[in-house]
Amino acid sequence: MNQIQLDSELIERVISQERKAQFQLFELTKRMVYSLAFRMLNDEELAHDVLQETYVEVFQQIRNLKHPEALISWMKTIAARKSIKAGKRQFEFDQLDQHHDPVDNQFDSWFDGELLDQAIRALPPGARAVFMLTAVEGYSHKEAANLLGISDSTSKSQLNYAKKLLKTRIQTLLRA
């Protein structure tokens, strides 16, 4: 994934509430925010709502940001929290056996990002949320569990479950 680099001048202009700078920030980061929301929610309408709500909060609260260089991470956190709030009813966590088999992460075939994205969207909502937060966005299990209102062990088992389902789904899609 491309790392978005924002210069300090743009960030300062956004903090000063300059409309052109806000629009420029929006244009530079909207795909990142929407992508995170859509992948967590698997719903275009909800993802657009999260996108809008994220920028409203960013522009209202940016003056309180203590470390402007962390703007992108802060925005992703806001988007993740808004996504979780928007999808709270859909994030159900399947009961899993605590003594599950470890996931074999080896694939015999090549696959592309579109195939992986399709497989991620097919995950159950709870497993998808944990996978997106931990495997894609880099949150710890403790942080993901806190955001989702679940235990650390549930986060870990849901991630393992998601990986197992992804492997099966990708292998099925590759055979098709």
Rank of each mutant, 00 (worst) to 15 (best):
N146P: 03
A129N: 07
D108F: 14
T134V: 08
T29I: 06
F93P: 08
W74P: 03
Q60W: 11
P125Y: 12
F131K: 00
V103E: 03
T77K: 15
T168S: 10
Q171G: 05
L116W: 10
Q171K: 13
G126N: 05
V14P: 01
R63H: 13
E137N: 09
N64F: 12
G126I: 12
S73M: 09
K163F: 08
R175L: 12
L28P: 00
M75N: 02
V14W: 02
Q3R: 07
A119Y: 10
K164Y: 13
Q171T: 13
P124D: 11
H67Q: 13
I170L: 15
L46W: 05
D104N: 14
Y55L: 05
R39P: 01
K167T: 03
K82M: 03
S155L: 11
D108T: 13
F23K: 15
F111Q: 04
E92V: 09
Q118D: 15
F107H: 03
E44N: 12
R121V: 08
E143V: 01
K76V: 11
Q22E: 03
L147V: 08
D97L: 15
D108A: 14
L174W: 06
K30P: 06
L165C: 11
G87D: 05
V14R: 00
R31H: 04
D152L: 12
L123K: 00
G138K: 04
Q90H: 04
A135C: 01
I11V: 12
A122F: 07
D7L: 02
R128V: 00
Q52H: 12
H99E: 14
F111A: 00
S151P: 03
D108C: 09
D101S: 15
Q5C: 10
M75W: 06
E137K: 07
Q61F: 03
L65S: 09
A176S: 14
N160C: 06
Y139S: 05
A145V: 03
W110E: 15
V56E: 11
K163D: 06
A21N: 04
K20R: 14
Q60P: 08
L46K: 12
S157E: 11
D43E: 00
P102E: 09
D94S: 09
S35N: 12
M132I: 13
S157L: 02
D43G: 00
L46I: 02
S109G: 12
R63F: 10
A145I: 10
A176M: 10
N105H: 06
H48D: 13
H48M: 09
Q95G: 01
H99G: 10
L133Q: 04
W110A: 11
L10A: 06
T54R: 00
R81N: 06
S151L: 02
N105Y: 08
K85I: 09
Q61I: 08
D97W: 11
R13D: 11
V136Q: 15
L123S: 00
Q5E: 14
L159P: 00
A145M: 01
R121F: 09
E53F: 07
K88C: 04
N42E: 07
A47G: 05
Q90A: 09
L41P: 06
I170V: 10
H141W: 08
D117P: 13
P124I: 09
K85S: 15
D112R: 04
E18S: 05
Q3A: 12
A37G: 00
V130I: 11
E12R: 15
A162L: 01
F91N: 05
L36F: 09
V136A: 10
L96V: 01
Q52E: 08
E12P: 03
S83H: 04
R121Y: 05
